[in-house]
Every structure is written in C-alpha cells, then in structure tokens.
C-alpha cells in the first residue's frame, strides 16, 4: 500500500497540463473511470434516455403515420385532448389498468400465500409439489393467454362445458353457454384477470415460501408456549416477519400488472368495446393501429409520470424497510 501511494505521488510530475499521462504511462484516476464507463453510459443514453426524451418530444407534435409529412409542433394540445376528451378513452384505460392490477395482485397474493403456507409444512413429496406449483409461472405469457382464450371460448371452451353441465337436483345455474368475450365486458374482465392470476400466484408462492423458511422457529415455539393459537401465530409472528417481503412482491406485482400486455391482447384485444383496454394496450393501439404516434407518445409520457410517482412510493417503502432492519 505504501509503495502504491509513493508511486501515485510521483506520477503528477510526468503528466501533461491536461492531466493526460506521458507516453508509456498508465491511464489512471477519473480519466480511466470515464473511459471505462463511456460504453455503458453511451448505451444508456442510446437505449433509454434518448427514446424517453424523443417520446416526450413527439408528444408535443402532431405526428400521425397516415400523414407523416403533416407533422408539426402543437404544444400541449395532445395533453389537453387525452386528459379532457373522453373520445380518446385515456381515463377508461387508467381505470381498467388499476382494477386489473389490484385484482390480480390481491387475489394472486392470497392464493400464493395459501400455497406457500401449505408447502412450508412437512408434507409428502414436498419437493415435487413445490416444483409443480411453479409451472404456471414458467409458461410464457402468450401460451397462458391462448390456453385461457380457448378455455373461455363460448363455443368450445371447457369453462362453459363445466358450467352448463352443473345440475343440482334439477337446478341448472348456467343453462346456456356464456359469451365470455361479448356482452357488457364483465365476463371478459373476469377471464383476463383469471388468466393473469393463474400465471402470477406461483411468484407469490415462491417468494413467500422463501420468506417463511427464514422465520426463526423459536418465535413460533415461544408464541405456542404463551398460548397463541394457529391464527394468532399467523397474525402476530408470520405476517410481521414477512412484512418486508410482502411489500416488495406486491409492489412488483402491481407494476407488472399495470404494464400487462400479452395476456389481454391475445385474449380480447382490449374488447369487447373498451372493457379490457388497459393503458399499455391503449397506447399500442393508438400508435400502431390508429397510427397516432404523437397521441400514443403523450399517453406514454403521462403513464410514465404516473408510474414514476408509484415507483417513488415503492422506493420509500424499501428505504423504510431497510431502516427497520
């Protein structure tokens, strides 16, 4: 260490007045750091910052690919249009995005937690069950979407087959096949949310199971000695012990669900009407089907801001958790 310090102190004498080393001298210090960081920074600028900046720039223009030559600066008009004119369906997409995300996250969490608690017990073939529970999570989104698309198909789907075959002493709750992708859209919402839950709950199972295995057995034993029942142990030991993990996984799930595309697009295209139109699908349709690039850029910018606010709270939660620990 002493030798290195001496060598470093000697070096300035050989450097040029611009801080560049003389020929044959090694590059060190801030210059070397910038040179080494430059490719990564360049990549970040090209891949992330430039597209975001260009999207914001486009949002103040009138670019529509059906008339690309008629592109000019229009100020805040796109923002005013999407935020105030119901024709553009922005707030409908926000509403469904929130409904979808909350429903998928809450229900997946409950199911995933239940599975985690079961798989945390000493049961036969424990490893096998744990492996099987992960299957829905490893199946690609599009495959999940088509699987459920056909299951809910009104003509030949298994869901209608099962529902119409229910016969309770002559009472048939569903006498005719249901049009899952038609009507007012309520059933379509149920279908896409169900598919997403099936795909998502193993994530909760995996993460919560890992958390459960880190909880000290002593606490459970002490609670038992103090007379706590199973529910009390769950409420007073398990839940507080998993609070940090629960905060992380639910937040991640909310963000993923807010950006869900494949399952909804493959199952309903956002229909019927706009019943399952979430923000990502709404933006995709505006950009690539309606060719309204600037309108899509505007919605993307607003959505980005909304997600940034959400992420801010996510980071605050994480910082809070770190402080506790």
């Amino acid at each position: 260490m002493a030798e290195q310090t001496t060598s470093y102190q000697d070096e300035p004498a050989t450097r040029s007045r611009f801080g560049m080393p003389a020929p044959g001298q090694a590059l060190e210090g801030p210059l070397l750091a910038w040179i080494l960081l430059a490719p990564a920074l360049l990549l970040l600028i090209v891949v992330i910052f430039y597209p975001v900046a260009h999207t914001i720039w486009l949002s103040f223009h009138s670019l529509n690919l059906s008339e690309p030559l008629n592109n000019h600066w229009i100020g805040w008009r796109n923002y005013k249009n999407i935020l105030t004119n119901p024709v553009f369906g922005f707030w409908n997409a926000v509403r469904f995005s929130i409904l979808f995300s909350v429903a998928v996250t809450v229900i997946s969490f409950v199911i995933g937690f239940a599975f985690a608690l079961i798989l945390n017990e000493r049961i036969r073939f424990q490893t096998l069950w744990r492996g099987l529970a992960l299957i829905p999570w490893v199946i690609p989104y599009v495959v999940v979407a088509y699987l459920f698309f056909y299951m809910f198909n009104s003509q030949y789907g298994i869901v209608n087959d099962v529902l119409t075959s229910i016969n309770l002493f002559g009472w048939r709750p569903v006498p005719h096949p249901l049009g899952w992708y038609g009507g007012t859209g309520t059933l379509a919402r149920v279908a896409v949310i169900t598919a997403a839950i099936w795909n998502r709950f193993p994530f909760f199972t995996l993460m919560l199971l890992a958390g459960l295995q880190t909880l000290p057995q002593d606490l459970f034993d002490a609670a038992k000695v103090d007379g706590a029942g199973a529910f009390a142990r769950f409420k007073l030991v398990t839940l507080p012990g998993l609070r940090g993990i629960i905060a992380v996984v639910t937040t991640l799930s909310l963000i993923w669900s807010l950006n869900e595309f494949a399952i909804i697009w493959a199952m309903t295209n956002g229909g019927p009407g706009v019943a399952t139109d979430n923000m990502v699908i709404h933006i995709y349709r505006a950009a690539f089907i309606e060719q309204g690039i600037s309108r899509a850029a505007t919605m993307s910018t607003v959505w980005l801001l909304m997600l940034l606010v959400f992420t801010y709270f996510y980071v605050r939660i994480m910082e809070g958790k770190a402080g506790v620990e």
Binding site: S66, E67, G183, T184, G273, V274, E290, Q291, G292
Partner: peptide, 21 residues
C-alpha cells in the same frame, strides 16, 4: 388515410352495441 383510425372507434361501438349498449 383516417379510415383505419376511425375503424377502431367504429368496431369498438359495434362490440358495445352487440353487447347491449
């Protein structure tokens, strides 16, 4: 040139009317 954009609004209405709107 604007027909395809209009068409997405029209088929959205078509679906909603078929669904009972």
């Amino acid at each position: 040139p604007r027909y395809s954009t209009a068409a997405t609004f029209i088929v959205t209405a078509l679906q909603e009317i078929a669904g009972g709107a």
